[in-house]
Amino acid sequence: MDLFKALSKKRSRLLELWMQYQLADISLREDLMENEELRAQSEELLDAFLKAVTDKNVENVDDPTYEPIIEILSGISISRARQGYSPKETGNYVFSLRDAILQVWQAEFSNDLAVLFAATLKLNKLFDNLGIITFETFIKGREEVILRQTDEISEISTPVIRVWDNILALPIIGTLDSSRTQIVMENLLQQIVDTGSSIAILDISGVPAVDSLVAQHLLKTVAATRLMGAECIISGIRPEIAQTVVHLGIDLSNIITKATLASALKQAYNMLQLEVRKVQK
């Protein structure tokens, strides 16, 4: 007797039970998804499940007949990750189907406990696998979100400001890694060309820590600016950063460094032979 075949006849009962389990769950997120939508989604998955799973392939999730289930499950999992569902909620969604199936079986095969037990074991194993697949894609979806946010942060956090004729300032906020340095460097050099500026001030007050790699990135940026024919001043060096730089033995002696943006600006005025004065009244 094929227990999974028997399920197909009980499709509507199964769907009702599953929906009941899902709706009874206290973590149901009505704010994220309408009940009708949830029902349609569940129906699609259930149909694929009933169509694919038989007694023969229940123990082999790698079987090609499982592809439609895995595809639907992955789609649901990824979209849930983007919508902001928690892993627990997504996990409960899949595992509540098992509970529904078990309940249907219990009602049908209560007279043949040996068959029921063997089938339950297989079902558990199958759902363990489906659960793992769900989590894998869920995490993948989350990682995509994180990656996109990282990109956005590095895009918006590198403005080049024109503080004066011929003077550019570039406040760097956040950790400097290779890819960000590349963006910073390109932005800065392009702005130097566009505005014809001869002095660039790199302000690192917003950089939480400077290690040898960050320092190397800074040195590269300064050297590239020099090659373009502009001078580079690094400002916003906090005491802790000065300490680490010296302890790491990084040589910044070839670069003009200033403690604050104000003193860097003063130095820039000096280099351009400009003078800031109070107006005599």
């Binding site: 460097m185 014809g196 590269k220 050297a223 590239a224 020099r226 090659l227 373009m228 024919g229």
Partner: peptide
């Protein structure tokens, strides 16, 4: 050396050529 393009400057730096002893201008 004048008028170096940003991409050229980045390439030279990545190659480790800082052109020491050469003056540069925009």
């Amino acid at each position: 050396v004048v008028g170096m393009q940003p991409a050229v400057a980045i390439t030279l730096i990545e190659l480790g050529l800082e052109l020491k002893g050469v003056y540069t201008a925009l």
